[in-house]
Design a protein around this nucleic acid. Structure first.
Length: 797
RNA sequence: GCCGUUAUGGCGGAAUAGGCAGACGCAAGGGACUUAAAAUCCCUCGAACAUUAGUUCAUAUCGGUUCGACUCCGAUUAACGGCACCA
């Protein structure tokens, strides 16, 4: 009889073997195909690993372990994304230095991750706060600066009053600070931007060259928000002057229905013509009010349109020649298009509401709707009316033709716009990469010379952000004061730091040559490892990290650092693990589960097995502690198989089908059904009462990627060899199908019985077999539908 | 409002190409072993009527296409996620 399975001892034993013998560490080897499996490296927070980490890592862990046994040279690295606010806030609260906090957290994370037994390459750990790493983050920033893709501009930004920090659009979705949940306000500040907008088209095109799930692709496309339309010049006339006002529209076909113009409160027109505007004080009041409105209020006042007519100016419709009024209203945004629109109330709901409120004319130019009730916005049907040159055309044709007309008259051009904004890139906080720029009174913004990189983050004892929203680094005068690298006169260092997303935008490249002193990524290493073959992560990063890192990689391609535009060939995304109440896990709800508690109670194999068995990997699933028992029983049953080895008739288990099923399911992220297939096989073996030696070996290898500790031990017990040096079994195609096959028999589409016939039998043979069952006795077969080797359906009379 | 995802037993979930609905697991019930319990092993397990066979209903709701629909089409409802006065 086998000894009881001693989880703690055995798991420790194999972890020691793996890590002490560097089993998963790899180097470039041209004799083997490479496979680069990547997980999103963790942020080492104070609270340790959570279940989300386990789910995220366990999928790539299965793939990595399987690919190794299939002969691949597998790079499966781990690192730490360690700059950022949570650590800094924690450090301030506990009066420790963020460096100390970070080191402690990385130690704790490393220990916990090793206890799960993941097969990471521990010799390649990168830490974004390591000067040897962030030297190259700074270097990439300087390259962006050199190419004009990093620029500073005084503008409105999202600002979190609690964190006292500027946020990117991606970090302040819904007007809420990503980090602390406070309401974001608009503030005018000097902001560094990265021109991600100029990569919008490349980021869209790149999606065609990679294998991303459809939902990720759609979300990125929506975030980039491409729209195709035209810029049209409306002549604005006042007493003494004329001014060309550019509006952006996707519907130039509706220009005959444009009965007024609307500009945003921030539009420069107001200031420029303040002398000509007769109600300027009213306008100024409105603008002032609009500017102080918070994001939150704007969103919640959707229904209630406000605005003021600009008196003293009027515009001329360049096509119809009609004289139309100009309004200022906050439903038009300065940040999109040109900050001015031509309002077509008959066919745009917002313009319609505005026109109704201000009693403006509504001219129908597309037939098919009832514009008394609402704007008619359907593009599909309806033809142009009341529009001389384009009457009778469909919307699609009319757009084309109108653009030609506009261009011919010199009053419009086709124009493509994107919703995605440039990336606000500086933070007024301590715990980040210093921006390597020197501000010189004579030379302006001067990049730090490459040979002075990295610009080290100076040690500060007081890292509290200042109320005037400048970086704590500004207090460190001996660091701030420097000489201009060009003219040598006194100059000041940039005191803002980079956002947390900087390091993660290129860390996957550093893994290929993590200790290279001479370059960000060693070209020889890059040539071998190249693109990430498979990257798993969370949906929450689709419009943040995933888009930022694609942008950086595309840029590094353009400057010749890497030879692929896209960093990731395949992406998968795990679904959230919810609490047992079906709600998102959170400390506030008290429904969290600590994965280390599960390891203590049941072992790492059980945790990994259970989390992958929970349900569809890519969908959210509630945690159900009760269900763990099933996994415990399953592994115990596998363990006890060692007492059941003997040869015999094993025809009731088709091992080739099992191999194919498990391999295919692993590859297509269906871990739950792969595990179910293994459970079914074990059930079959128990009913039969024995397992053959070969079946046992195959079963252990198939299960090894999910539960490596126990299978390593068992494999070593029964074979005396190491499972991590075994080969993943290959299935024999010819054994996948058996000679006889059961055909379900339906009558009027309802299952009545099954008949056993030879493979590839024709219809007559099947019907003969059915006759023998007596099903047809006393009935006339009117018709039958036979799908070879699948099913037969009979129509009887 | 727009875009996306989802809806299947008491529960988590299977059903890969329109072809056996409910794999696998949990919970529940029964049996074996045991002085007993736990553990283990075996059996039952969508609902109703009949309980030998069988019949009918059943994949959010209503309709359609088809020999045949969880799967395709049309409408509706609900939940989750993303975007949001984006011209």
């Amino acid at each position: 009889m086998a000894k009881d399975y001693d989880i703690k001892t055995i798991e420790k034993k194999w972890q020691n073997y793996w890590y002490n013998n560097h089993v998963f560490e790899v180097s470039e080897d041209n004799k083997k195909p490479k496979f680069y499996a990547l997980i999103e490296f963790p942020y080492p927070s104070g609270s340790g690993l959570h279940l989300g980490h386990i789910k995220a890592y366990s999928s790539m862990e299965v793939i990595a372990r399987k690919k190794r046994l299939q002969g691949y040279n597998v790079l499966f690295p781990i690192g730490f994304d360690a700059f950022g606010l949570p650590t800094e806030n924690y450090a301030m609260r506990t009066k420790h230095h963020p460096r100390v906090v970070t080191d402690e957290n990385i130690d704790r994370f490393s220990g916990q991750i090793k206890r799960i037994g993941y097969s990471f390459c521990w010799d390649r750990v990168v830490d974004t706060t390591d000067p040897d790493f962030y030297k190259w983050t700074q270097w990439i920033f300087l390259k962006l600066f050199e190419k004009g893709l990093a620029y500073k501009s005084y503008s409105y930004v999202n600002f979190c009053p609690d964190c006292k920090v500027v946020l990117a659009n991606e970090e302040s979705q819904n007007g809420i600070c990503d980090r602390c949940g406070s309401e974001v306000v608009q503030k005018e500040k000097d902001v560094w931007f990265l021109k991600i907008r100029s990569y919008a088209e490349k980021l869209l095109e790149g999606l065609d060259t990679v294998n991303f799930p459809e939902r990720i692709r759609t979300e990125q496309e929506n975030w980039i928000g491409k729209s195709v339309g035209a810029e049209i010049i409306f002549k604005v006339t006042c007493v003494h002057n004329e001014y060309p006002l550019i509006v952006y529209t996707t519907r130039p076909d509706t220009i005959y229905g444009a009965t007024f113009l609307v500009i945003s409160p921030e539009h420069p027109l107001v200031e420029k013509y303040s002398k000509e505007i007769t109600n300027i004080s009213e306008i100024n009041n409105y603008c002032k009010e609009a500017k102080t409105k918070k994001e939150f209020e704007r969103i919640h006042m959707l229904k209630d349109k406000t605005g003021v007519r600009i008196d003293g100016l009027y515009a001329t419709n360049p096509i119809s020649g009609a004289r139309i009024p100009i309004f200022i209203a906050d439903y038009v945004m300065m940040g999109y298009g040109s900050g001015a629109i031509m309002a077509v109330p008959a066919h745009d709901q917002r313009d319609w509401e505005f026109a109704k409120k201000f009693d403006l004319p509504i001219i129908e130019v597309i037939s098919g709707g009832d514009i008394e009730k609402e704007a008619y916005t359907t593009k599909a049907d309806g033809v142009l009316i009341n529009s001389p040159e384009i009457n009778g055309l469909s919307v699609k044709e009319a757009i084309k033709k109108m653009i030609v007309i506009l261009e011919k008259k010199g009053v419009g051009v086709p124009k493509t716009d994107y919703k995605m904004k440039d990336w606000a890139f500086n933070r007024q906080r301590y715990w980040g990469e210093p921006i390597p720029i020197i501000n010189c009174p004579h030379c302006g913004q001067v990049p730090v010379p490459d040979n002075e990189l990295p610009i080290l983050l100076p040690h500060l004892d007081d890292i509290t952000p200042t109320d005037d929203a400048s970086s704590p680094l500004s207090k460190c005068t001996e660091w701030v004061n420097t000489k201009c690298p060009i003219c040598g006169c006194d100059a000041l260092r940039e005191t803002d730091t980079m956002p947390q997303w900087a390091g993660s935008s290129w860390y996957f490249l550093r893994y290929m040559s993590p200790r290279d002193k001479s370059f960000a990524v060693n070209p020889k290493s890059y040539k071998y490892w190249g693109q990430v073959d498979w990257y798993n992560g969370g949906m929450e990063h689709v419009t943040r990290h995933l888009i930022y890192s694609r942008f950086w990689n595309n840029f590094l391609f353009d400057i010749g650092v890497v030879s692929n535009k896209e960093p990731y060939l395949r992406r998968s995304a795990q679904g959230l693990i919810l609490g047992s109440d079906g709600e998102k896990m959170s400390k506030a709800r008290g429904n969290t589960i600590d994965p280390i508690d599960i390891v203590d109670a049941h072992g790492a194999d059980i945790l990994r097995l259970f989390i992958l068995f929970l349900g569809d990997y890519e969908k959210p699933a509630p945690w159900q502690s009760e269900g763990i028992k099933g996994c415990v029983r399953f592994l115990n049953r596998v363990w006890n198989l060692q007492d059941m080895i003997r040869e015999g008739d094993s025809s009731d288990l088709n091992i080739d089908v099992l191999i194919k099923k498990v391999d295919d399911d692993y590859e297509s992220v269906k871990f739950n059904t792969a595990i179910a297939a293994l459970m079914t096989a074990v059930n079959t073996i128990y009913l039969r009462g024995f397992i053959t030696f070969n079946e046992f070996k195959v079963l252990l290898i198939l299960l090894y990627p999910v539960a490596p500790h126990m299978t390593s031990e068992l494999y070593s017990i029964i074979t005396g060899a190491l499972i991590n040096e075994a080969s993943f079994p290959k299935y024999d195609e010819t054994n996948l199908i058996s000679d006889t096959i059961e055909i379900p028999v339906q009558v009027f589409g309802k299952l009545k019985c099954r008949v056993s016939v030879p493979l590839n039998s024709d219809e007559a043979t099947v019907i003969d077999a059915i006759s023998e069952t007596g099903l047809l006795t006393g009935k006339t077969l009117k018709k039958s539908i036979y799908v070879k080797n699948r099913i037969i359906n009979l129509i009887l009379e």
